[in-house]
């Protein structure tokens, strides 16, 4: 069966966060295997848009489809197919990288081969894999979190400030990983303040201001 080209399609979507209309009528779309940058000042609605795409925040008005599913009606069925990496990594500090990835593999039903492939894709070798997350650098933690995302076989990667807290080498590593993921079939939406760097990565930039799309370039 042909996969639909448009994987995210929001038309005049409104989402409320903490009694505030963080998305005040957003029209926004993303095609399969695209890398799209969301940019805008703090409070523009970037994080809310990512969380709405992940089905975490309800869209209360307008229409919103992710992977062909109307998420205004059904937010839960897309969750297995979408991966969100926010400001936090979603890791367990007392566990090693391998144990974190193993945990995710088990709860999502990934095979041993998929788990090994995810670790390899993030350049996590034997020695690094056995280090506890609490002992890792910010870049290594990000790589571990991305390995957990890969093991989940997410079709859409929603990344909130993926470069935050990383040194130049760590940022380059993340960019490389994202390019490889897009080549391998993932669709990626990145919210970032690092516009220049992210623009080199993205095919399109969507500017958000006060919950509205102010431009697409």
């Amino acid at each position: 069966m042909m996969q639909p080209t448009r994987v995210i399609d929001f038309v005049d979507a409104v989402a409320v966060y903490n009694d505030y209309p963080a998305l005040a009528g957003v029209t926004f779309s993303v095609d399969r295997q695209e890398i799209v940058l969301l940019q805008g000042p703090n409070g523009a609605g970037k994080t809310t848009l990512l969380r709405a795409c992940a089905g975490l925040i309800p869209v209360v008005r307008g229409s919103a489809h992710v992977l062909g599913v109307d998420i205004a009606i059904d937010r839960e069925s897309i969750r297995e197919r979408v991966g969100l990496l926010g400001h936090q990594n979603g890791l367990f500090a007392e566990l090693t990288i391998a144990e974190n990835v193993d945990f995710w593999s088990t709860v999502v039903g990934a095979t041993r081969a998929e788990r090994d492939a995810a670790m390899q894709r993030m350049s996590i070798d034997g020695k690094l894999a056995n280090r506890r997350v609490s002992e890792l650098s910010a870049g290594q933690k990000r790589r571990c979190a991305l390995a957990c995302l890969v093991v989940r076989r997410a079709e859409i990667w929603l990344l909130d400030e993926p470069h935050a807290g990383l040194d130049a080498k760590g940022r380059d590593e993340i960019d490389l990983i994202l390019k490889e993921a897009a080549s391998a079939g993932a669709t990626i939406v990145v919210a970032s303040h690092e516009v220049e760097r992210a623009q080199q990565l993205a095919s399109r930039t969507v500017s958000l201001v006060a919950g509205h799309v102010r431009g697409v370039s």
Partner: peptide, 16 residues
């Protein structure tokens, strides 16, 4: 241990 680094959020997003 679930909320300190957003793991509970990740579990919800993953539809676990």
């Amino acid at each position: 241990i679930e909320v300190s680094d957003g793991a509970l959020d990740s579990l919800r997003v993953a539809g676990v």
